[in-house]
Each structure stands twice: as structure tokens, then as C-alpha cells.
Simulated scan of single mutants.
Amino acid sequence: MLLRLDLQFFAGEKTEKATPKRKHDERKKGRVAKSQDVNTALLLLFSLIVMAIFGSFMKDNMLALYQHSFTEYIHWELNEKTLFQIFTEVAIELLKIVGPVFLIAIIAGFASNLMQIGFLFTTEPLKFDLKKIDPIQGAKRIFSLRAIVELLKSIFKIAVIGTITFSIIWMYKDDMLMVAFKNAESALQFFGQVTLVMGISAIIALMVLAVFDYAYQRYDFEKNIRMSKQDIKDEYKNIEGDPLIKSKIKEKQRQIAMRRMMSEIPNADVVITNPTHFAVAIKYDETEASAPYVIGKGVDHIAFKIREIAKANNVMTVENRPLARSLYASVEIGEVIPEEFYQAVAEILAYVYRMEKKV
């Protein structure tokens, strides 16, 4: 009894790698190995590239908006119409400034996901599930090992990025104190330069962290979808079908094929026999095939049934032991006879046609 329980326990252990079908099913549900750090790193990288390329354009537009605000808007009388106009014009200018960054951020988001998991569209995660609002399940997720690992990772990332950011600010602290004595254009240029240095440093750190995080996410995902030996057996049964049901289906298919074959025997030109053990029904129809073909064959009991049906439908039976055996072994039902049998079969068909004319 104890031995059986031990075997059941080990059979239920998740020790086997997930099968391709299991991975495909998990993917359809939207469960894939993905690192958010890769997304963040690529998003920041693309955004900085855009800022580096369009930096002068963004600076010129910001200065133009600054000058326009303090030379034009400041003198306007505030009412409903002017407020709406100011809001509209400022919104358009801001959209011009940050638009390229927003656009590239969207592209970077798609690119990072495609790079990690390929194209995936599923509505499975959006389906309503009571387990998602179950407080017990929620508590388990909050205090799970994965949640603790994610918390420690977040703290470590904050510490690393915070240290890098603070170090760069500390490097430029003297220049920052002198910004108050610079004009707006020089101040914007300085802060743009500092932001670029901070961004590049943060990206390098995030890229390194992303490599380790992606490896961990893949490992954790593969671990979570592991299967037991029993799971693999059940999956195989579901794919291949229960052996008992499969055997019944095959038996049913054989019966249907047999009935179809027997229904064709009355259309045969001749049945070549062994005389008792083998029977092969031959038909020649120029519109169907270029040579005679087999429409039915059988051995022992089936051969007897073929001869019986042939006799009942006045189909001639010819005994030729070697030919019957050879045709049975070489030709499947519906196939044209091979060339080596042409002469022997032609002689039999000629004999049959002569006998039918005499009758």
C-alpha cells in the first residue's frame, strides 16, 4: 500500500520538461517568458536616440513657446475665448515637442515584445475569472516566492539606477549651480547634455540587468510549466485518443470499407481465385483507368464472401493460384495492376469476354 502511494506521489511530481503542446497552450493563454527590464531598457534607448536626433528641434520649439508665452500670451486679456486659444496652441506645440518621443516609445514597446515572444494576440487574460478577485489567491500571490524575488529585484534596480543618477548629478553639481547665471538656451542645452549622460549610463546598467532578468524569467517560466509523467501520458492520450476508442474506430472503419468493397463486387469483370484461400476481383474500364484495376480482394472468409457475391451476380470466377496470390500481395484495392501482370490478366479477361458472348 505504501509502495503504491509512493509511486503515485513520484508520478505526480513535476519533473519533466513541458511538451511543445503544453507550451503552445500556455502561449494561447498569454503566458510567456518575458522580461519587463528588456522593455524598459529598449524604451529608454530609443527615446534617448530620438532626443539626440531631434534635440535641437525640441529645444528650438521649447524656446519659441517660452518667448511667445512671455511676449504675447502675457499681454492677453484672460477670458473663455483666449484661455481656449492659449490651451489649444500650447497643446499643439507640446505635441510637436514630445510627439517624436511618444511615437518611438510605442515602436520600442512593440519591438521589445516581438523580440522576446514574437507576435502574440490573445484575449484570454481579459476574460473574467473569479480567481483573480479571490482574496486568498491574491494573498498567496502577494506572499509567494516569486513576489519576494520581484520585490528584491525592484529594490536592487532602484538602488543601481539611483546610485548611477546621483553619481552623475554629483559630477555636474558645480555646473548646475551656475545654471542660474545662464540664459534659457544655454540652460536647456546643459540639462539636455546631463540627461543624455544619465540616460546612457542607466541604459547600460539596465541592459546588463535585463540579460540576467530575461534568463531568470525563462527559467522560472519553464519551471512553472513542468509536467509530471502522468501529465505527459494524459496529454498523449488526448492527442492520440484512448487506445480502446481508437481500436473501435478502426474496426468501424474496416467494416465500412468492407461493405463498400463488397458492394463493388457485382461490377467486377472477373474474380480470380486460389481457389479457396484467395480471391481478387478485377475490372477493366477505359474511362476509369488505362489498365485493369482491383476493386476487391480477400483471404479465407472474405474470399468466400467475394466468391459468393460474384456467383449471385453472375460474375465469372477463374481459378489461377499463382496469379491470385501475387495480385493479393502486390496490388491494393483501387490500384491498377502492375505491368508484369498485364499478359496474364489480359488472357483471363479475353477468356471471360468470349464465354460471355457464347452465353
Rank of each mutant, 00 (worst) to 15 (best):
M1L: 14
L2P: 00
L3N: 08
L5M: 13
D6W: 15
L7M: 14
F9N: 15
F10T: 13
G12A: 14
E13V: 06
K14D: 12
K14T: 10
E16K: 12
T19Q: 10
R22T: 07
R31K: 12
R31G: 11
V38Q: 05
N39M: 12
A41H: 00
L44Y: 02
L45E: 06
V50K: 03
G55N: 05
N61K: 04
N61M: 01
M62H: 01
H68W: 03
F70Y: 11
Y73I: 05
I74N: 08
L78E: 07
T82Q: 07
L83G: 13
Q85S: 01
I86A: 05
E89W: 00
E89F: 02
V90L: 09
A91Q: 04
L94T: 11
L95M: 10
I97A: 00
I97P: 08
I97K: 09
L103R: 02
L103T: 01
I104S: 00
I104A: 05
I104C: 02
I106Q: 04
I107G: 05
I107Y: 06
L120M: 15
F121R: 02
E124Y: 06
K127Y: 00
K131F: 09
I133H: 02
D134G: 06
D134A: 14
P135L: 09
I136Y: 09
A139V: 15
I142P: 12
F143M: 12
S144H: 07
S144K: 10
R146Q: 15
I148R: 13
V149M: 09
V149R: 01
E150F: 12
K153M: 12
S154A: 13
S154F: 10
I158D: 11
G162K: 06
I164T: 04
S167C: 01
W170V: 15
M171L: 10
Y172E: 11
A180T: 14
N183D: 13
E185R: 12
Q189T: 09
I203T: 02
I204V: 13
A205L: 09
V208E: 08
V208C: 10
L209T: 00
F212D: 07
Y216T: 04
Y219I: 09
F221Y: 10
K223N: 15
I225R: 03
D231W: 10
K233G: 03
Y236M: 09
Y236V: 08
I239A: 08
I239R: 13
D242E: 12
P243H: 04
S247G: 15
E251V: 08
R260F: 00
M261R: 02
M262Y: 07
A268I: 02
V271I: 12
T273L: 03
N274R: 01
N274E: 10
F278G: 01
A279R: 00
K283D: 05
K283Y: 06
D285Q: 14
T287W: 01
T287V: 07
E288P: 04
A289K: 01
P292V: 06
I295N: 03
V299H: 06
V315F: 02
R321H: 14
P322L: 01
L327Y: 06
Y328R: 10
S330G: 11
S330L: 15
S330P: 07
S330N: 14
E332N: 13
E332M: 15
V336K: 12
P338G: 02
F341N: 07
Y342Q: 08
I348E: 03
I348W: 01
Y353S: 05
Y353C: 05
R354S: 14
E356G: 01
E356F: 10
K358W: 13
V359M: 14
